[in-house]
Design a protein around this nucleic acid. Structure first.
Ligand SMILES: [Zn+2]
Length: 406
DNA sequence: CGCGTTTGACCTGCGC
DNA sequence: GCGCAGGTCAAACGCG
C-alpha cells in the first residue's frame, strides 16, 4: 500500500460535520476519524503539549466555578469621550491588554484542567465498565461463549501484559463492532499502526477483504478487517476485533472505548440474539460519543456478535432500513443499563451516571471537551500515527469494531 | 537492506 | 469424511 497517507479517511478531522450535516452533503472523499496531527485552529493546541501529563485531578467544582469569576469580555467598552487624553487611552489599553492576557492564561489553565478531568473521567468510566462487565458475567455464570473459538493464545489475558490488573479477570469473548463510513479511501485513519497480513476474496462480494494487525506494540492482539460494501463500493466497512495491550493515542483510545462498550453491551446481553436496537443505541450512545454520530444495529446472524455503527446516514433525516437514529450527543438520560432488560448490577455505575446526568453544566462541559478531542481539524496528510499517547489507556472486554459505509 | 505488501498455501470450523 | 469458506501464515516481491 503506497500512498495511504493521502487516502486514509479519518473521522476526527471532520470538524463536526457529523454532528451538523443536515444539508446536502457531497460524498465524503476522505474522513479522518482520528486525525492526530496538530490542528492549527484548535485553541487547545497548546494543551496538547502537556495534556498527557496527568497529575491529581482537580475536583469537578473548581472547573465549573471558574465561570463565576469576573469575566473580561474582551470588548473595549470604555467610553471614548473626547475628554479622555491619549495617555489615558494608552494606559487603558495596556491594562486592558494585561487583563486580557491574564484572562487568556486563566482560560488556558481551565482548558487544561478540563482536559485532565476528561481523561480521568474516561479512564474511570472504562474501569467502571470493566467492573460492570465482570459483574454481569458473574451474574450469569454459565452463560455462553458467544464465539466458537475464544481460546487462542493471544486471547488469553495472561499472555498479554495489560496495564489494568482488573482486565486479567475479564473472560474474553469475541465481539465485533462494525463501522460503516462512506469513503473512497482504502483505509481509515484510526490512530493506530496496522500491518496487512492477508487478503481474501469474500464470498458474495467482488471486493476483496483485507486483514490488518496492530503493530503499535509487539503481540498486540487487535486485528481489523477492511472491506468495501458489495452494493455500494463507496462504503468502507472496517471491523475491529480485540483490545490493545499498549497505550493508545487519544483518538485510538476513543475508538477502543467504542469497541469495548459495544463488546460489553453485546456480551452482557449474553447470547440472546434479541437485544433490541433501542437498547443498543441507548447503551452505546451513552457509552461513547461516536455512537451518537451514527446509527447502530445489532446483528446476531453473523458468526460473531457484531454491532454496526453506521456513519453513512449523515443525519439528513433519511433513515433507511431498520436503522435507528441515535439520540443526541451525550443525551442526558443516562441509565443505559436499565434499558438492557437486566437489573443494573452496579450501583456505582448508576450513581456515577446520575451524578453526571444531573449536572447539566458538567454534561455540557464534558460534551464540549469531548468534542474538542474527537472533532479537531482535519490533518493535512491523513497521518495515522500517534500524537500524544495516553498513558495507561484502559482496556475492556475483547471486542471488535467495524467501520463500514452505506 | 529493512520493512511492508502481496499472494498462494495452509489451517480450522462448520454443514452436509 | 468431504468440501467450502473464513482466517492466518510466510515466502516472494517491491519500494525507499
Ligand atoms: Zn494495538
Amino acid at each position: 500500500m503506497e500512498n495511504h497517507h493521502h487516502r486514509e479517511l479519518s473521522f476526527l478531522s471532520s470538524s463536526g460535520d457529523f454532528l451538523h450535516n443536515n444539508s446536502i452533503d457531497p460524498p465524503i472523499k476522505e474522513m479522518d476519524f482520528f486525525s492526530s496531527s496538530p490542528n492549527k485552529n484548535n485553541k487547545e493546541d497548546d494543551l496538547d503539549q502537556h495534556g498527557s501529563i496527568i497529575k491529581e485531578v482537580s475536583p469537578l467544582p473548581t472547573l465549573l466555578l471558574t465561570h463565576h469569576d469576573p469575566v473580561n469580555t474582551g470588548l473595549n467598552l470604555m467610553c471614548s469621550s473626547a475628554a479622555v487624553s491619549k495617555e489615558e487611552n494608552l494606559e487603558n489599553s495596556e491594562t486592558e491588554m494585561s487583563i486580557l492576557e491574564s484572562e487568556l492564561r486563566r482560560v488556558q489553565e481551565e482548558n487544561h484542567k478540563l482536559r485532565i478531568m476528561l481523561e480521568q473521567i474516561t479512564k474511570s468510566y472504562s474501569q467502571l465498565q470493566a467492573q460492570l462487565f465482570i459483574t454481569l458475567q458473574k451474574q450469569k455464570p454459565n452463560h455462553g461463549q458467544a464465539c466458537p473459538h475464544d481460546h487462542p493464545a493471544e486471547d488469553s489475558s495472561h499472555s498479554s501484559k495489560l496495564e489494568e490488573p482488573t482486565q486479567d479477570l475479564i473472560p474474553f469473548k469475541k465481539a465485533r463492532v462494525s463501522i460503516r463510513a462512506r469513503s473512497e479511501a482504502p483505509l481509515i485513519s484510526d490512530g493506530c499502526q496496522w500491518r496487512k497480513y492477508g487478503q481474501k476474496m469474500a464470498k458474495g462480494n467482488p471486493c476483496p477483504r483485507a486483514y490488518y494487525r496492530c503493530t503499535m506494540a509487539v503481540g498486540c492482539p487487535v486485528r481489523k478487517q477492511v472491506q468495501r460494501c458489495a452494493e455500494d463500493k463507496t462504503i468502507l466497512i472496517t471491523t475491529y476485533e480485540g483490545n490493545h495491550n499498549h497505550p493508545l493515542p487519544p483518538a485510538a483510545t476513543a475508538i477502543a472505548h467504542t469497541t469495548s462498550a459495544a463488546a460489553a453491551m453485546l456480551l452482557s446481553s449474553s447470547t440472546s440474539s434479541t437485544l433490541r436496537k433501542e437498547s443498543a443505541t441507548g447503551y452505546l450512545s451513552n457509552s461513547f460519543p461516536y455512537a451518537t454520530m451514527a446509527t447502530s444495529t445489532l446483528s446476531a446472524s453473523q458468526p460473531f456478535p457484531t454491532i454496526t455503527l453506521d456513519f453513512t446516514q449523515n443525519h439528513n433525516l433519511s433513515m433507511h432500513h431498520n436503522r435507528v437514529p441515535l439520540p443526541l450527543f451525550f443525551s442526558h438520560k443516562l441509565p443505559p443499563l436499565l434499558q438492557l432488560g437486566q437489573p443494573p448490577p452496579s450501583s456505582m455505575v448508576e450513581s456515577v451516571s446520575a451524578a453526571i446526568s444531573s449536572d447539566p453544566n458538567f454534561t455540557t462541559a464534558l460534551a464540549a471537551a469531548i468534542s474538542s478531542i474527537i472533532g479537531p481539524q482535519r490533518s493535512g496528510d491523513g497521518n495515522n500515527n500517534l500524537a500524544g499517547v495516553v498513558p495507561g489507556s484502559p482496556q475492556l472486554p475483547q471486542s471488535c469494531t467495524t467501520f463500514s459505509t452505506n
